[in-house]
């Protein structure tokens, strides 16, 4: 490489060098982008394409079929269950996350371990564990009957209730983790300031702590709700065959009818709904707040 000695002529060389460096750095992302494009975007594109393919080219038949009563019912069930599980996971997860965030470090670590423990256990194992506990002749019913608290066994499994319990158990960590992260980042001085300004502990909690924990709460809601929308195993195992989820319709279309078109259309609808919800929530509270911006 030649060194230019003429003062300002260097400028061009610097620019070239700078540009080359920038290109080099940016090219580092190419393998990552290619992989994401291949394993994430390509299948989605394929999904869209298949959802509008009929035996004779382009068709919207697959979407039209979704207006069928049984699909609409499934959609309703899917949303009802997802909303219910999300609401319950807030009701249980918020106090738990609060407790952990306020506990002393060692206790907090222990509690966190207990929260995370189920995540490391197989989904199937957890579902069967609930079955053993809550079915008609399960541990809980036998115990309640032996104690004379109930005469006939409670119907806790093989229905909507059982599915809700099972899904709630699986979803709870996904609510607690972002909540906990959000709560931990709330400076103790905020609560002190609120108290100093005259807020009782209860008011300080509702007026200062809760609003400041909202980013974590929204993140939790989105994660739990979106995961619920696509749930399959738990409703299939604990629902007694009654709880129809959108994902089951997809599975049914593929395995029984070999109808990739219909299954793709179902997938596209679920994806669109999910994105729609994300978009709406993002518009409502600002997406950067959820993913950890300001």
């Amino acid at each position: 490489m030649t060194v230019s000695t003429g003062g300002s002529a260097n400028l061009g060389a610097y620019r070239v060098a700078e540009r080359r460096e920038r290109w080099l750095l940016q090219s580092l992302v190419v393998p990552g982008l290619a992989l994401i494009g291949l394993i994430a975007l390509a299948p989605i594109g394929w999904l869209f394409w298949m959802s509008v393919q009929g035996s004779s080219g382009f068709t919207l038949d697959h979407y039209q079929r979704l207006l069928d009563e049984s699909y609409l019912r499934t959609l309703k069930t899917t949303f009802e269950l997802s909303i219910l599980v999300t609401v319950l996971s807030i009701a249980l997860g918020y106090p738990l996350a609060y407790l952990i965030s306020q506990a002393r470090p060692r206790l907090a670590a222990l509690l966190m371990l207990l929260v995370l423990f189920p995540v490391w256990t197989s989904l199937l194992v957890r579902c069967y564990a609930w079955l053993v506990l809550l079915q008609r002749r399960g541990v809980v019913n036998s115990w309640l009957q032996d104690m004379g608290i109930i005469d006939a066994p409670l119907k806790l499994m093989h229905n909507f209730t059982g599915t809700t319990i099972g899904m709630l158990h699986i979803m709870l960590p996904f609510m607690i983790l972002p909540l906990y992260a959000s709560m931990r980042s709330i400076d103790r001085d905020y609560m002190r300031a609120a108290a100093n300004l005259g807020a009782s502990p209860v008011r300080a909690f509702w007026q200062v702590f809760v609003p400041l924990s909202l980013p974590g709460l929204f993140a939790g809601i989105i994660i739990v709700f979106v995961l619920c929308l696509g749930f399959y195993v738990t409703p299939a195992l604990l629902g007694g065959g009654r709880v129809y989820m959108w994902s089951m319709q997809i599975e049914r279309n593929v395995t029984y009818y070999a109808d990739w078109g219909a299954a793709s259309a179902l997938g596209v609808v679920l994806l669109a709904l999910t994105l729609g919800i994300l978009w709406a929530v993002g518009r409502l509270i600002g997406f950067d707040r959820i993913v950890g911006g300001k």
């Binding site: 400076d187 002190r192 300031a193 400041l212």
Partner: peptide, 20 residues
């Protein structure tokens, strides 16, 4: 007396202004 019943003004080192 608990803090919220002391009626004293306080300025915190990091200000503790409520961001919401």
């Amino acid at each position: 007396a608990p803090p919220h019943k002391r009626d004293v003004g306080m300025v915190f080192q990091n200000y503790a202004l409520f961001p919401h």
